[in-house]
Design a protein around this nucleic acid. Structure first.
Lengths: 203, 203, 203, 203
DNA sequence: CGCTAATCGAGACGGTACGTCCCGTCTTCAG
DNA sequence: CTGAAGACGGGACGTACCGTCTCGATTAGCG
């Protein structure tokens, strides 16, 4: 809960919150507007009305800025996370969330954001860890609650951890999205949910 | 099996096979030696003893060259694919392959190749499609055979396609690799196989 | 009169006159169409419908081809040389020729040709010599006749050679053209002629 | 005398004088060391310890840089201009300067500089104008003074402008240098001076 | 409340890699 | 067995970003 922003050396009290927001907003906007490799620090600085020096004073590189921007957005809008409802019917709850994810993936902006995150994660282990903790971790927490309830209701095997369960229904969708290896439809989402539940069912 | 080499514009008859191989080999070598963003077209050209113009004559960019190099390697060494054995025990067969995959992912060279492929796929839809068809597709074919046998043996549900089955056991591993969200151990591989088989079992 | 074309090694008997003319014509055409540095051997070859290899077989470089093309034209159209009339009035005869030169210099094509010649002469001593002998020399011969007549008529000092006399009325115009240091008008031409004649007059 | 440095677009206040001098000096040095076409922007940048981008930020091309370098040198060393002495004997004064010019033309460095200037002037009208104003113009001014004195002393015709007078003794030498059409000796210089004076003499 | 030092915008700088263009050579293939 | 077509290695081009830096101008917070 404490301020996680142990980031850079400079005094940090003097830091202009205005510049910081401008940079993050500009980064976010550009990520949805341009193919990722065409986003440059110069462009972000220009769009934000901020100097390049200011950006490099507070972030180590383009990637760190982009990842922080996305984490920030993720923190600002908790409703967009994987908030699993609990109707008692695990498969239906999962299917609902997967349908929502599939719908979101069709949105070019969301697609662009995901792409940016993935690229930076793949290029820099430090950013990958940051993504895992600040974005993936948050999502995992939400899922954990629902699974705890399911476990309590005896709907989950004992030998499957939350992370493995989470992977079981998220990874296929993500894999298909990233590789464009098949259609991302509601029917597909339902199928993934059904298979996940079968795999997780006790007995 | 047919000639898949409908590739680029120029006459293609006059093309120097020697230069082509040199470029692909150099690209492959560099991918395993350097962090991906540090690989430059100049370096590939120099290593291959080929001019930059020649590279740009036949490939649109670094990414296309790298992807073709990997696809080529994939075609040259079929033994490194997902060749699923058929012992009759589907879960054991899957677990064996997943263990092999997990081992491979620990190899820095393989890691670098995968990273390169993923980054390029994410940056350019055309390359993503090329990867899907020339690399992913080949792997899928191998898997298909084993699943056909399993299906014939009544070990597979009727309502699950090969692609979905494939995703079920490959996507979690890939997801965990890419996000570094958990350990990639033999135990984990076994767990994925077990869950996949449960999800695919009829009834 | 003898064949001056002791040029290159190849058989020369087999040489395709058609290709040779096509190349020279294309070079000439391009010189008048494009700024000189943009004229490339590829462009000449393409325009001529001749292969680059053929060009390099017979000429050492672009410059040699261009210079030969201009020399050829110079030889083909003797009427465009400095043909000094002989009316008995040396100053009037010179003024007439200088006016003609000045008019020609206003023609963009002629301007382009001169530019090409000068550039090549400056870049390569061998071509400079070729220009001197095949183009300048021809012009000088024409002038020599008129000056011989003038000398016979006692209108020329004894201590001035033809070359010096020639320079006296040609160099100023050429210098002004090349440096764009002043207007090139008929009045100017007349002035140059007058000064030249004063300088050359005996006594 | 006034600040002639109205040159390029960008802010110019922030411009690094150090980089500017380094680039000009390097260009000048290379011009005297290498045949002109072999001088590359990369080489100038490397020699100057300056980045290519900096060169292109302030000069449009190699030619502009070289011309400015020569103009700069011309401004820095006024003693090397055509400083006509005034002994009262115009012909002797001219002959002296022409002998000096002829000697200079025998110097390979000077030859290279002139060649470079001429080539660039012929290839680009903008540079030709720059040469005329920043180099030729300066020389002309020096000559003008001597001619004003001569005119005051009644040694010059009224109907000949300074520019024409200047051409009369400079153009032949320049023409002979550029075309290599004859020897550049002291005797020749004396002859040119004599002819020029005859042409300019009143009556 | 005014001094002083950090931060800000602007943008020039040394670099590195880019992707293009042209050179002059060499190979292939149609006539 | 010529010659058009054009791929090739080489190398310079001019551009685009990178991340650093130097400028004044602004501004915050300690004295």
């Amino acid at each position: 809960m404490a301020d996680a922003s142990i980031r850079c050396v400079p005094s940090a009290t003097r830091r202009s919150e205005q510049s910081r927001r401008a940079a993050l907003d500009a980064a976010l906007a550009l990520v949805t507007e341009l193919p990722y490799p065409r986003i440059t620090v110069d462009a972000i600085a220009a769009r934000a009305g901020v100097s390049k020096a200011t950006i490099y004073r507070w972030w180590s590189a383009k990637g760190a800025l982009v990842v922080e921007a996305l984490a920030q957005q993720s923190a600002d809008r908790p409703e967009e996370h994987l908030v699993l409802p609990d109707t008692g019917d695990l498969e239906a709850d999962l299917a609902g969330v997967l349908r929502a994810i599939v719908d979101e993936m069709a949105d070019p902006s969301y697609d662009a954001l995901m792409r940016a995150l993935s690229i930076e994660s793949l290029q820099d282990p430090a950013l990958r860890d940051q993504v895992r903790e600040q974005i993936f971790g948050v999502q995992l927490e939400y899922v954990e609650r629902r699974f705890a309830a399911a476990r309590a209701a005896g709907q989950l095997r004992d030998d499957v951890g939350t992370l493995e369960a989470f992977e079981l229904f998220v990874a296929p969708v993500f894999h298909r999205w990233q590789g464009a290896t098949g259609p991302l439809t509601h029917a597909y989402a339902d199928g993934v949910a059904a298979r996940a539940v079968r795999a997780l069912r006790p007995g």
